[in-house]
């Protein structure tokens, strides 16, 4: 039901592409991938949520944990491609101002280059 894959964008960055519903059952799978990258101190983690149609608070909590981890070593965790209903969860949680959120991968990458 959930597919999580990673691909390198350069020596410093990785895109995590998530497809499916992120809920109490599936969020540990996302967490495992993010923690694996933060343990390696991956500088830039871009999370592609364009194929996530549902995310609950456990999914949001997983991303908050990732954000806090990258903050410890000066890295970045950036989100892009959020569907309206997923974005609403961040807005309701007032986390839309805490995360860097971009409409698509190109915009997110452009921001990283600045």
């Amino acid at each position: 039901m959930l597919d999580v894959s990673t691909r390198n964008i350069d020596k410093k960055g990785v895109v995590i592409a998530i497809a499916g519903d992120v809920d109490l059952y599936s969020s540990p799978e996302v967490r495992k991938v993010i923690i694996d990258l933060t343990n390696k101190k991956t500088k830039n983690i871009l999370v592609d949520l364009s194929r996530v149609s549902y995310m609950d608070s456990s999914g949001v909590a997983t991303l908050v944990e990732g954000l806090q981890q990258v903050g410890k070593y000066g890295g970045k965790l950036i989100l892009f491609g959020l569907e309206a209903s997923v974005k609403e969860v961040f807005e309701l949680s007032r986390l839309d101002k805490v995360f860097e959120i971009y409409p698509d991968e190109k915009t997110a990458l452009d921001h990283l280059k600045k």
């Binding site: 609950d56 806090q68 949680s93």
Partner: peptide, 8 residues
């Protein structure tokens, strides 16, 4: 992380 469920 956590504690958002009731708020939502």
């Amino acid at each position: 992380p956590g504690g958002l469920g009731v708020h939502l």
